[in-house]
Simulated scan of single mutants.
Amino acid sequence: MDNYRVKWVRAHDGRAMVSAVSYDKPSAEHRQAALEAEGATAIEIEKVQPGQ
């Protein structure tokens, strides 16, 4: 299984965030959609190695 991390910028304070967990691709895309609904910006999904 490939692992993915989600990075984004919070809408309410402009703070850059990185997910503390890794996701599979569909879960990362679901998280991206949830972040977009919250108003987050600069959302990126990046592939990572297991345990990273």
Rank of each mutant, 00 (worst) to 15 (best):
E38G: 05
E29Q: 15
V9E: 06
L35E: 06
D24L: 01
E46P: 01
A16V: 04
L35I: 04
S19T: 12
E44M: 07
A33V: 06
M17A: 11
V9A: 00
P50I: 09
D13A: 08
L35V: 05
D13F: 11
K25G: 03
G39C: 04
L35D: 10
S22A: 10
R5Q: 14
V21K: 14
N3P: 02
M17L: 12
E36Q: 13
N3C: 12
K25P: 00
E29P: 02
H12N: 12
H12S: 13
E38H: 12
V18H: 07
A40Q: 04
S22I: 06
R15Y: 05
S27T: 08
N3E: 15
A28R: 11
S22E: 10
G39L: 08
Y4I: 01
R10G: 02
S22Q: 11
G39F: 05
E29L: 15
G14H: 15
R5V: 13
E36M: 14
I43Y: 01
Y23C: 02
H30N: 04
Y4D: 00
A37K: 10
D2R: 14
E36A: 07
V18N: 05
E46W: 01
L35K: 09
A11C: 05
A40S: 14
G14W: 15
E36N: 10
A37N: 05
K7Q: 03
H30S: 09
T41K: 13
L35S: 09
V6W: 12
E29R: 12
E44Y: 00
A16I: 03
L35A: 07
G14C: 14
K47L: 06
V48G: 06
K7M: 03
Q32M: 13
A33M: 03
P50L: 10
M1R: 13
M17D: 06
H30C: 01
S22R: 07
A33K: 13
Y23H: 14
G14S: 14
S27Y: 01
K7G: 01
P50C: 06
M1N: 11
A40E: 09
A33I: 03
M17Q: 12
S19H: 07
E29A: 09
R10A: 09
S22N: 12
R10I: 00
N3F: 15
V18T: 09
Q32P: 01
K7H: 05
Y4W: 09
Y23Q: 08
A20Q: 15
E44S: 03
A34R: 02
D24S: 11
Y4A: 00
L35R: 09
L35M: 13
Q49K: 13
A28E: 10
S27L: 03
D24Y: 08
E38F: 02
A34I: 04
S19Y: 00
T41A: 15
K7P: 00
A34F: 05
R15C: 00
K7N: 08
K47G: 02
G39Y: 05
D2H: 10
V6P: 09
